[in-house]
């Protein structure tokens, strides 16, 4: 068991590091109360993703991945900018979520990670790349973002969860299989962007209606 890591090439090590950082950031997002910090964490996650894509691109010599990295960097710059603006416009800077019992959420998160790894195990046996073990982490990131969406009450944090989920998917694509076809990637990105804008419009409407972005108010729409 001692030291097998040193024999792995540097690029793979870097990708492993990126994977770990992604996971760390996912957990940080799960535990973060303040919206502004949440957006920053999301931006950091995007940056990590860009970094790992660049490493993959450089080490495998697949030049289209550079393009992919460039496209991904939209999420590091543009989306956080939009979100920050939204937060300012809706004056939510000082809003905090009332989270129930962060440790419990984290514990569930741990279970999710184990589950994701167990699930990814047979899949990653099939993959041939050195970094295939990151597939489990990517899947965990997706599931953790999902968990985050479940535990949040505010609409904005749910959108961030949604976007983070997409980060996880991209990471799975680049690290485990060295990228998916460009068309698919662009398509997903476009979807996300459109989604984000539609959400933005929705926010204004929700707030006009209920004077707040608490999603619990939506429950009053139910007929009974």
């Amino acid at each position: 068991m001692p030291d097998a890591t040193a024999s792995v090439p540097l690029s793979a090590q870097l990708i492993h590091l990126a994977a770990a950082v992604m996971l760390l950031l996912s957990f940080a997002m799960l535990a973060q109360r303040r919206l502004v910090s949440l957006v920053n964490l999301f931006a950091a996650q995007g940056a990590t993703l860009v970094g790992s894509t660049l490493v993959v691109a450089y080490s495998t010599g697949q030049h289209e991945l550079y393009l992919s990295a460039a496209v991904t960097s939209i999420k590091v710059v543009l989306l956080p900018y939009v979100l920050h603006r939204l937060i300012r416009r809706l004056s939510l800077q000082w809003d905090t979520e009332t989270l129930v019992n962060i440790p419990t959420t984290m514990l569930i998160g741990l279970g999710v990670v184990i589950f994701a790894f167990g699930l990814a195990q047979p899949l990653s046996e099939l993959a041939s790349t050195v970094t295939r073990s990151t597939l489990g982490i990517a899947m965990a990131v997706v599931l953790l973002s999902f968990l985050m969406m479940i535990t949040r009450r505010k609409a904005i944090s749910q959108v961030i969860g949604f976007l983070a989920m997409e980060n996880g998917l991209f990471f799975a694509a680049t690290s485990a299989t060295y990228g998916m076809p460009m068309v698919v990637e662009l398509g997903i990105l476009l979807d996300v962007l459109v989604g984000a804008f539609i959400f933005g419009i929705f926010f204004f409407h929700i707030r006009e209606q209920f004077e707040s972005l608490e999603l619990s108010h939506l429950e009053s729409l139910k007929e009974d």
């Binding site: 068991m1 184990i114 167990g118």
Partner: peptide
């Protein structure tokens, strides 16, 4: 326990 050749079983260690 990491030496156990069973992925779910060896993840029992940390927990």
């Amino acid at each position: 326990t990491p030496e156990i050749p069973q992925p779910f079983a060896n993840m029992l260690v940390p927990l």
